[in-house]
């Protein structure tokens, strides 16, 4: 007997990941750490999607020979979120790759990974006026 609902726990974890990611986006200065934090938001959302398709005691959504259709309809997991989350993971990975590549270029250019040093340019008017 499972005392706590698995789906509910997963949803809470997803929410926690998103909140941690948002905190990281604001408070962390190191760019690599910031990017890791930002990918937490992405992963939290992915976890949220995948937990939607969860069904306690469910079966994989493939109709095998000999299965009762009514039983299958009641017990199979919802397959759409699983299909969606794959695409979402791929997108997240490519975004992550581009961000890390950019931070490599910037590290070579500035010799620092601190966001406040390399990503903070004063606007033109404050600079030169």
């Amino acid at each position: 007997m499972i005392l706590l609902d698995t789906q509910l726990l997963t949803l809470f974890t997803a929410g926690a990941l998103i909140v941690i990611g948002i905190f990281a986006a604001i408070y962390i200065d190191n760019i690599i750490k910031k990017i890791v934090g930002l990918s937490f938001i992405e992963e939290g959302v992915n976890l949220f999607i995948i937990s939607l398709g969860y069904k306690s005691g469910g079966v994989i959504p493939i109709l095998l020979p000999g299965m009762n259709i009514k039983w299958f309809a009641n017990n199979s997991a919802y397959p759409l979120p699983q299909a969606l989350v794959l695409t979402s993971i791929v997108i997240g990975a490519s975004t992550l790759a581009v961000m890390l590549a950019l931070s490599m270029v910037l590290y070579k250019k500035h010799g620092s990974l601190s966001a406040s040093k390399i990503l903070n340019h004063e606007s033109d008017m404050g600079d030169e006026l």
């Binding site: 604001i26 966001a115 903070n120 340019h121 004063e122 606007s123 404050g126």
Partner: peptide, 17 residues
């Protein structure tokens, strides 16, 4: 307003959140 609408990432993420 102009100084708050800065190009720095800190202000931009802060205002976005």
């Amino acid at each position: 307003f102009f100084q708050e609408q800065d190009d720095s990432i800190e202000k931009m993420t802060f205002y976005a959140i």
